[in-house]
Design a protein around this nucleic acid. Sequence first.
DNA 1: GGCCATAATATGTCTGCACATAATATCCCA
DNA 2: TGGGATATTATGTGCAGACATATTATGGCC
Lengths: 237, 237
Amino acid sequence: MTGAGGKASGSRGWEDIRAEVLRRIRAREWAPGAQIPIEEELAAEFGVARATVNRALRDLAEAGVLERRRKAGTRVAALPVRKATLEIPVIRQEIEARGQVHSFQVLKQAFMEPPVPVASRLGLPPGIKLLYLETLHLADGKPFAFETRWLNSEILPRPMPDFQSLSANEWLVSHVAYVTGDIALSAEGASPREAAVLGVTPGTALFVTERMTWTADSPITFVRLAHGPGYRVQMLV
Amino acid sequence: MTGAGGKASGSRGWEDIRAEVLRRIRAREWAPGAQIPIEEELAAEFGVARATVNRALRDLAEAGVLERRRKAGTRVAALPVRKATLEIPVIRQEIEARGQVHSFQVLKQAFMEPPVPVASRLGLPPGIKLLYLETLHLADGKPFAFETRWLNSEILPRPMPDFQSLSANEWLVSHVAYVTGDIALSAEGASPREAAVLGVTPGTALFVTERMTWTADSPITFVRLAHGPGYRVQMLV
DNA sequence: GGCCATAATATGTCTGCACATAATATCCCA
DNA sequence: TGGGATATTATGTGCAGACATATTATGGCC
């Protein structure tokens, strides 16, 4: 058997169950919107415990293929929301994964009042000062991404980390671990400043990611990354 | 109790266990890279079954917070790969979710040989003909996204669906359910054709998504969506 | 000392049972 | 007939025990 310690007959582990359910959905034996048999029936049919069926169906529900509700049963999603998982590595890893060498330059570092939109999205009162950093990330010495970051200095230890030698990005992931946040992706024309830093002509289409992160109690940072031409984000569905 | 039928003492369900583990990680009681106690010890400590601890730790591992290997044990991810989940709705839903009205125009429909890169990425021999569709999606009558699609006509029923009245997008999700695929996101300057169709000036930064989808046996479709200025993709971490 | 077979170990999964919970169906009474 | 209390039901979660699997650690052999 694939997994464990019971009987087994035709199908084996929960992944086999999942595969078979998926096959029936694809083959339209179970049409979109239709209800599928209850866990007990499936367990009996496949000759496994209900927990095993539950594991398989739960997995498909997480993937958006099934919709489950107590008492109401399980049905095939009518308009399935496809979900893709994006893995957001640290920039250094991203560059090294391409076989290139990562380096960076801190172009600016100062305590400043953030623009109102940044402060309000971080949930901070206006007038408070944050650490502002401008960093250029290079891959094999060529501009890769331009980072502008507002950082809540409350969370920094003293003495403050030296962001000239360790990027704020990496300091944060390894010292303020496991925050929540949101990400926005967009396309924007390069501003004159961005164009100059990245070595492109103003107006060039840049791939921009903006991230806001916070812990339960306090806001951490707002980052904007402007990626040079040719940057692509790949995801598997 | 939160969940079920056993003893219980301090902590209750697997979500409480997960929360407590996460708290210890955030509090640096368990540092990044460090190994955490084995499931049995945690189960004893929390007064739950090992399966419950397993559920909690598995969930954190899926989220990228923990790294688990048989025999090697469980450790806190040193450089956590943050994972964000992107939900890809059908365009109509996306527009309607903004409170706007969706409509679309099919600008072109023809059987053609696809460009070599498209054919090869779909795993098709050169020279085969595919259905090519150009569609402009509108939100409240204003250009929203320009869709160019190559569609494997083998999978279409005859008579062919009328893509003038039902977008290929929606026909596919409800008739060729649950395919796998990949997605690429990028920023590109508008080509003259795209600029004309979307009503912007050439070179304007467009947010481009390209999707390739296939079933186990055969390729389905390649779509490129060029979104007008201001388009943003939001994700939660 | 180096290498391969073997033991040890932590996680992965399954069974069978039980109770919890949420949501729907049903029934009863005004 | 309407509406609220109650029964029913499918999923959600838990427990204990067991076996499976992947790795790592160990030991013996040459």
